[in-house]
Design a protein around this nucleic acid. Structure first.
Lengths: 216, 216
DNA sequence: GTAGAATGAAACTAATTCGTATCATTAAAA
DNA sequence: TTTTAATGATACGAATTAGTTTCATTCTAC
């Protein structure tokens, strides 16, 4: 989180070009992310963010107004990246493995930890993370389940998602587990699909809608 | 979180009895919990805790040394309460419903949110929460599954636990969902048991160990 | 009874940190 | 060329807050 900025050795002073302004803005947000992830919102000082971005505090306040502004803008930028474009040729199994791998990554865990911690102070931030991240994942899982196992089975997409996260996801949030490799993620995904009877080998029959459907 | 302390109208000053000291200690920790839950560790000031406990800052520092001391002692006290004694006459279904209801409660969600937020600063606090809370739940689920569905099915206790928490648990952490009622928890639990084929109606056959077992 | 421990009340210290201001400097704009 | 916006560097103000100290007080311990 420190050696990732070998960019400009010495920064020029005067008025920057318009392109320079755009670049600097992104530079600040990119630098703010790891700082927030490491320290959390409260302990992440503006001075530290400024140092990481190789920019003075003054510039940060010019661009974002205050610390909250940096935080929300950073999250807004992340939300745009989270929604990766769907790969056309993808099976349910490979999609599940990708989700597991991505959600257990250090960056995602850090972001989730941060958003959970500040969910009371920044409720719409939590809303964005859930809508743009989780709900899209669930919808995409539902699409694949529907294609491979029929309409009835698609109702279990959310439960499948919960299984893909699993207790390991919570262990990651609690700092009790290291990030998983892609291979481990694939194994985990297969195990989840198997227990919910969504492997391609044994598709779900018609007796899917068991107990009361989740009301939420 | 404020009208819950109509205790002593006016506190005496002088030296307290030994019993009084024990009581005051608990009083401080009890008052600290809701303050930490509401504000988080960073924004929970010692002054606020002192006010909530009807005690002066001075007393808090005498008892706990510093703010971290209050925090860790509070969590240590909670850990003792989390492990509720097992009810002898309980089915897997009722146990599952109890777990769902308890983990979605406002107090538990607040505690988890807090521990997740501070897991980097207080790693052993996260460890305690996981060992004394989650792992005991999983073990108890495994016991019931073993009794009702055989040894092979018990391997899925952790996956069942993940389903019992579900996406709703994460929505609770993110502040996007209100606590569930006991009835809703029961429905949720039945749905989880059904999807994992652990309802008493249709017990799991021998074809349980599907893909690679979780490696964690 | 007396000494001293523990507390309330409240002021105080020291450190942190958000946000602003000053001054020099560079380059875009006019 | 002149003007001006934006920046670096740095100092500063104001607010918050962890932790300490002082003084009076009241009760336990002996």
């Amino acid at each position: 989180m420190d050696s990732a900025t070998p960019a400009s050795p010495v920064r020029k002073r005067g008025r920057p070009t318009e392109a320079g302004r755009v670049e600097r803005r992104g530079q600040i947000l990119d630098a703010a992310l790891p700082v927030f992830l490491e320290y959390g919102f409260g302990k992440a000082t503006v001075d530290r963010i400024a140092a990481a971005a190789r920019v003075t505090k003054r510039t940060i306040y010019t661009y974002f107004g205050d610390k909250d502004g940096v935080f929300t803008e950073m999250q807004r930028r992340l939300a745009a990246n989270v929604s990766g474009e769907p790969l056309r040729t993808e099976t349910l199994e490979s999609l599940a493995a990708r989700i597991v791998y991505g959600l257990h990554s250090a960056q995602m865990i850090g972001l989730h930890r941060l958003v959970i911690a500040e969910s009371l102070r920044f409720p719409e931030l939590a809303r964005r993370l859930h809508d743009n991240g989780d709900m899209r994942h669930i919808a995409r899982l539902a699409d694949h389940i529907r294609a491979e196992h029929g309409q009835a089975a698609a109702a279990h997409a959310e439960q499948l998602y919960a299984l893909l996260l699993g207790e390991d996801y919570r262990r990651r949030l609690l700092g009790l587990l290291e990030p998983v490799t892609a291979a481990e993620a694939a194994v985990h995904a297969r195990s989840a699909l198997a227990v919910i009877q969504l492997t391609t080998a044994s598709p779900l029959s018609g007796a899917a809608s068991a107990a009361g459907a989740p009301s939420t």
